[in-house]
């Protein structure tokens, strides 16, 4: 299986390294022909507005949307989570998403950078110690449909917000496992989500 990492902007090299540590040689992709050649796709952390604008300018937007709709296994972290959401609560002007998970996300939900944080997160489907998770100007899931599996949540002011979700062959996390050296989320994607 060829796993691509969308390399328009963001921390795509960290995802590539994480794949490598899982024994998978990933490929950075940023043209329509490169995206067409991969069997699965990771959408990295970065600026979701920048990534979606570049995807539109270079003929990737409709292609990626269609491939996700057709069942290509896809994992998005942070900006990637925003981009695989069905809708954004508070989009930047003209900002659209690829879609893939029946959810609405709130951008920068936890606040600005001074509120960015690390926390131990329980992740359904991943055993062992909780996952040390890095949230950077992260989104959360504001609401999601009944077909969405919530794999991890954070409680803020007494209210629970999903931060790791999956639907079909699409996985999304509001945090960045690619920054920690703990590759269990990548393994979960490769072993569980891709084989659904």
């Amino acid at each position: 299986m060829k796993v691509g990492v969308l390399a328009l902007q963001g921390d795509f090299r960290e995802h590539l390294s994480a794949l490598g540590e899982c024994g998978v040689t990933g490929k950075l992709v940023k043209t329509p022909s490169e995206v067409s050649e991969v069997d699965a796709l990771i959408i990295p952390g970065g600026e979701s507005t920048t990534i979606s604008k570049l995807a539109k300018s270079f003929g990737l937007f409709d292609l990626i949307s269609k491939r996700i709709a057709d069942g290509m296994p896809t994992y998005g972290s942070c900006a990637g989570m925003i981009l695989v959401a069905k809708s954004i609560l508070d989009p930047a002007s003209g900002q659209e998403t690829f879609g893939g998970i029946d959810m609405q996300v709130r951008r920068n939900a936890f606040g600005r950078q001074t509120e960015s944080f690390e926390v131990d997160l329980a992740f359904a489907g991943i055993s062992g110690a909780p996952i040390r998770s890095i949230f950077i100007r992260a989104p959360w899931v504001e609401s999601c449909g009944s077909g969405v599996d919530v794999l991890g949540s954070l409680e803020v002011d007494g209210k629970s917000h999903p931060v790791a979700v999956a639907q079909g062959r699409v996985l999304a996390t509001a945090f960045h496992p690619e920054l920690t050296g703990d590759n269990r989320v990548h393994r979960y994607f490769l072993e569980e989500v891709c084989n659904k």
């Binding site: 390399a7 328009l8 902007q9 963001g10 921390d11 795509f12 090299r13 960290e14 952390g45 970065g46 600026e47 942070c78 900006a79 950078q113 960015s116 890095i134 950077i136 100007r137 960045h176 920054l179």
Partner: peptide, 8 residues
Amino acid sequence: GMAEMLKG
């Protein structure tokens, strides 16, 4: 990590 997200 914040700077990592700005890369590219």
